[in-house]
């Protein structure tokens, strides 16, 4: 199985590679459109600021590449947010795979949300053998609202999509590569899709 991690210059993606290796698989970091389009599983990570990240993706022409993907693709954190139509962060145009706007947390709680949160509910194969009571590690100031695409719901002052799916595109707001046993299980579930 060919596993790639889209490397467009953002954030800590070594950790994701290491987490996949700990599960006994090999993943390649790549910015080659050809290599990404020939993969069996694609990870689309993201850490940092939306506008900047989207600009880097566009500069490398990888926005078109990601949109064309037909294989299971997992957006992580900012990667998931960039799958949406638009983000309030820097008023950024996303990939437009989901017809929704990424919003900033507007509540009395601390922003960013940093730490371990659990789910109100989960559904689908990505969460096989994972219970809603399992915790995942997140760091974010913006969130994807609930919608038809939501496959896991968590709450931080407001309920939000902690995971989503539209066709072959999956997204998780948390960092499975940093979420101990539960995160490893989710990565394994994705690799077995």
């Amino acid at each position: 199985m060919k596993i790639v991690i889209v490397d467009y210059g953002v954030g800590n993606i070594q950790s994701l590679k290491f987490a996949i290796e700990r599960l006994g698989y090999q993943a390649r970091l790549t910015e080659s459109s050809e290599e990404i389009l020939n993969a069996d599983k694609v990870f689309f990570p993201g850490v940092g600021e939306a506008k900047n990240a989207m600009a880097m993706l566009n500069d490398k022409g990888l926005d078109q590449t990601v949109r064309q993907l037909k294989v299971p693709t997992l957006g992580i954190c900012l990667g998931m947010q960039l799958m949406c139509q638009q983000s309030e962060e820097g008023n950024t145009q996303g990939l437009g795979l989901l017809p929704c706007v990424v919003k900033r947390f507007e509540n009395h709680l601390k922003v960013p949300q940093i730490g371990w949160n659990h789910f109100d509910w989960v559904k689908g194969d990505l969460f096989q053998s994972l219970k809603p009571t399992e915790y995942m590690y997140s760091v974010h100031s913006y969130y994807v609202p609930l919608g038809d695409w939501t496959i896991a719901c968590s709450d931080y002052g407001t309920p939000y999509s902690s995971a989503l799916q539209i066709d072959n595109f999956y997204g998780v707001q948390f960092h499975p590569e940093k979420s101990s046993f539960s995160g490893s299980q989710l990565l394994l579930n994705f690799l077995k899709l």
Binding site: Q14, F18, E21, E177
Partner: peptide, 27 residues
């Protein structure tokens, strides 16, 4: 980073963008 599956912070004498860049790149 290779072996630990929870988040970790590194500190101690960090004083520049270069210091931070190396540590984040390494995981």
């Amino acid at each position: 980073a290779q072996q630990i599956d929870i988040p970790f912070t590194v500190g101690g004498g960090i004083s520049s963008i270069e210091d931070v860049s190396v540590l984040l790149q390494n995981g």
